[in-house]
Simulated assay, not measured.
Amino acid sequence: MGTSEATPGQPEGAARQLPAATVARLTIYLRALTSMLADGTERVSSESLAEAAGVGSSNVRKDLSYLGSYGTRGVGYDVAHLSRNIAQALGLTHEWRVAIVGAGNLGRALAGYAGFESRGFDVVALMDADPLLIGNEVGWLRISDVADLEAVLERTRANMVVLALPSAAVQQMCDRVVAAGVRSILSFAPVVVQVPDNVTLRKVDMATELQILAYHAQRAQEQDLERALPKDLPGAG
């Protein structure tokens, strides 16, 4: 379970490049730790954290070693301390102000999602080009005209942008967002978007995820059928 000493030459909480798989798992650990804090849990073993996160305990120990070792052998990890350090490593101790471009069904649903704020993301703007939507309110947000994108980003000090737009409009809007100085973008359009090397673009393609689910579901059905076949049939087994 490690010791309470930091990795030699690596100050506790110091920034370093983390593997993508580790970053993804850290978000899951943080969610599990947040739940434990709410339940009053003060310490957790790597095995218990692994079970809560749905990963192997060796993955937990390896991932947390990138941050410096915060566990004590035989005692486990201090839940509050570990939670703070993971949040720091993920950049969640900074102020993240999110602007959503696209006030259709998806954009409005995202704007109204309460989970963003609880995870450190403040939705500060919602924009659209439809005159019928501009000026309407979604929660406490008033939909702004996307023609004023640059001014809205500057006024709200947004440093992240979510693009909830039709595929045909994404690249042009992304170019405007980048030109306005935003370097962190999330797109829901199932298209390739070109951005400069100093911009981080993440894509959420729900159709692709459903196709992957369909593949795994088909494989599971095939395996169930194989197990159900009598072993003495020609070609079975």
Rank of each mutant, 00 (worst) to 15 (best):
N59R: 15
E117K: 14
Y66A: 00
N198V: 01
R176Q: 11
L49N: 08
L133I: 11
S184C: 10
G40Y: 04
V199Y: 12
A21G: 14
Q211T: 08
A87K: 07
N85M: 15
I143N: 11
A129R: 14
Q221M: 07
E150K: 05
A158Y: 08
G91W: 07
G135S: 06
M173R: 05
Q194K: 15
V204F: 08
A164T: 06
D197E: 10
G91F: 08
G135C: 02
T41S: 08
V161R: 06
A80V: 05
P234T: 03
N85G: 15
R119T: 15
H94P: 04
K203D: 09
T3L: 00
I143P: 14
A14N: 02
A38C: 02
R97E: 04
L90G: 03
Y77L: 15
L201D: 05
A89R: 05
V199N: 11
V123H: 08
R61G: 01
G135E: 00
T3Q: 03
A21V: 14
F116L: 13
G76I: 02
V60Q: 01
V55G: 05
M206G: 11
N159T: 01
E42G: 07
V123D: 01
G102P: 13
S184E: 11
N198W: 01
N198Y: 01
D145Q: 05
V75Y: 07
G40H: 03
R119L: 13
G76A: 03
Q221F: 07
M1A: 12
P19S: 09
Q88L: 07
G237A: 06
G139M: 08
A103M: 14
H216M: 11
S58E: 08
N159P: 06
M36V: 02
M206L: 11
L92H: 02
L110T: 13
R31G: 11
A151G: 09
E117Y: 13
L186E: 00
A50E: 05
P11I: 04
Q194A: 12
D122K: 15
R183H: 09
K231W: 03
M127G: 11
Q10E: 05
G13W: 00
S167P: 08
V138F: 14
S46K: 08
A89Q: 03
E12F: 04
G115S: 12
E150I: 03
I100C: 08
V182N: 05
L163A: 08
E12W: 06
K62L: 09
T7R: 08
A50W: 12
I212H: 15
G71C: 12
E42K: 15
D78V: 02
A217W: 14
G40L: 01
V60N: 06
